[in-house]
Nucleic acid binder design. Sequence first.
DNA 1: GTCTATAGGACGATAGAC
DNA 2: GTCTATCGTCCTATAGAC
Lengths: 195, 195
Amino acid sequence: MSDRRTEIVRAATRVIARRGVRGLRVGELAAEAGVSTALIYYHFTDRAGILRETLEFIGERADRYTAEPDHENAAKDPRAELEQALLLELQNSAEVRENSTAWGELRASAVFESGLREDLARATHTWVHEIAELLGRAHPAGTAPAHAASAERLTALLEGLSIRWLSGSLPLDHARRLLGEAVDAEMADCRAAHR
Amino acid sequence: MSDRRTEIVRAATRVIARRGVRGLRVGELAAEAGVSTALIYYHFTDRAGILRETLEFIGERADRYTAEPDHENAAKDPRAELEQALLLELQNSAEVRENSTAWGELRASAVFESGLREDLARATHTWVHEIAELLGRAHPAGTAPAHAASAERLTALLEGLSIRWLSGSLPLDHARRLLGEAVDAEMADCRAAHR
DNA sequence: GTCTATAGGACGATAGAC
DNA sequence: GTCTATCGTCCTATAGAC
């Protein structure tokens, strides 16, 4: 991918985080990227193509984001690594906000645009799988299917908490506490005997 | 509120569930309601006004929806009532799909339109409170703050599972199973001793 | 209150020069 | 590859008759 395409996709991510997928105007994207609208259409087929590649980029970046191991913790404490991997996405930094907002927009858009669903489902699956692996290392007593289910619950909960935070229904520190407690609950041994 | 206004707001809810908030066209709304576009503007100031009242309506309806007690279960088994109240929102019927989709749109829209946040936060709070009360009846051993936290986790998880279902990342029966297990986990006594 | 008709503007997309 | 200029369409909102 050329540098220009990458620049434009990154600019599109910023615009989406600011205005939403629905609010992205090709003109505003051009201004954000510092190019003309015509150049956008030289590099991408149409608005839907911009969206497709940008949302793909968001999905991939979210992967890398989660996948990057924090080696300090990795060796010492897999449980801390797990908790950190999840809480990483509930932070009031510009970068995390942008990421979370864009991801939420990707999710919400896919409800109405079936073309986005395949990529989204794949990115979701990759993410869930990574969390399940962390769970496996942090909690070797559990079975693989139990870890898979826990990972699905924890990531879905994180998405739910994240949008409540971003939509002003839940303070950030409260969301972080709720998520931390959920991690503890999923790792408690008594769960294994249940169901 | 006149009958016509109510009709139009109901029609707007259907269009939003079909096309999303950003996809709502006044023309399509007029057709859905069986009136002219001019009549829409006679009853509402502008497109934003339609959206505001419709999203307010969605929030209120969501309240009533959850609040309506199923008396058959209420008397017998508060735990079943709780589980049903939550699973009610994960069903493949036209009505539930419309409700969930519209609620998800309200949530997603509030990220970018601060004017919606207050209503949304209030509706969310009411819902969480109702679930917390059901938890209290189903699980008297727990404390009120623990029930409040559980209700926040369960409802946030439900929102996360719901949008994964609607966006094609999670089959409905799988979502229902994950939610059911989460309810069990929140009611397991071992949680109380934890943290 | 409700309609038909249309003004006026915003936006996606393209043409064509450099 | 990148620009300026513009076309055509779709959409919000209003004018004015009934």
